[in-house]
Amino acid sequence: MNPFNYSRSSAAAGAIQSLVKEPQAHLLAGGTNLIDLIKMGVVAPERLVDINPLPLKSVEKTAAGLHIGALATNSEVADHPLVLQDYPLLSLAINAGASPQLRNMATVGGNMMQRTRCNYFFDTAMPCNKRVPGSGCGALEGYNRMHALFGASDHCIAVNPSDMNIAMVALGAVVHVRGPKGERTIPFGEFHRLPGDHPEKDNTLERTELITAVELPASAAAFRNHSHYLKVRDRSSYAFALVSVAAALDMDGTTIKGARLAMGGVAHKPWRLHEPEAFLKGKPATEATFRQAAEIAMQGAKAYRYNKFKLTLAPNAILLALQTASA
């Protein structure tokens, strides 16, 4: 850990200004990820801009859907009556992550921005292109049991570790951000990126931008009665996903009117399954249908030495999540 400056920001404009002025300034929300990274020597900020005083904590209904402030904590969101009523998938996903203590501190913005848990990223004595571009990928030929099946590159095979993100992408959330040039929105599915040649970039947020909110569309409430978040992990709680599946169905009797499906633990970004979703539409909710959807989902999967089991686990998890959601 290096010595750094600390300041608190009570206006979004001020926080953004700090980022513009100091290239080594970092925003601090719940601190549950950033502080660890500083302690491990993975990140060495010159300034921490504490954004907790910003008025970005509210969760409220809008014409478009549900507006969730970037500083709302993970627990507040998971337990919020409107979330539980209209978007139970999000609540399930958040509660499948971390521990109650962490969720009490963690924020929506921080959760979206959390870095990968790849062990090579965390250990400064081993190579990692995400931490030190050009140093090599320790995981590629190393212990890659937790790593990606989809969309990886030779530079990085890490996965995005968030549970919340999987539900957000499935529900078609929209990210609201603000930067020096003003505000813009980013569809959740385009917020995180694949590693390609630049694994050091996790997402499409500019360094000087601040996430202000995430919005869930009103239309996604159609899935409220048939959704499930399945997280398969090495112990019953407090472990990252080996594979997770967010499944949400809009059912008409036993027929699937619409489907949303996304996987976690398999890619550098929350992995939305558009083709299986399209396939499921209009089909009967049977095991055979679900198996076919899972098969489509697995096209293009590529495993490494230690994560081959995910080729079996992922389609099984899709099947089980869909079965549970449809029940």
């Binding site: 965390f122 250990d123 081993m126 190393g142 212990y143 019953s236 709680s237 472990a239």
Partner: peptide, 19 residues
């Protein structure tokens, strides 16, 4: 990781004691 002679899960998040 025998290439480096280092543990890759030397922490309480990745080394899983039962909860």
């Amino acid at each position: 990781d025998d290439r480096y002679g280092r543990y890759v899960n030397g922490n309480f998040a990745d080394y899983h004691v039962p909860v």
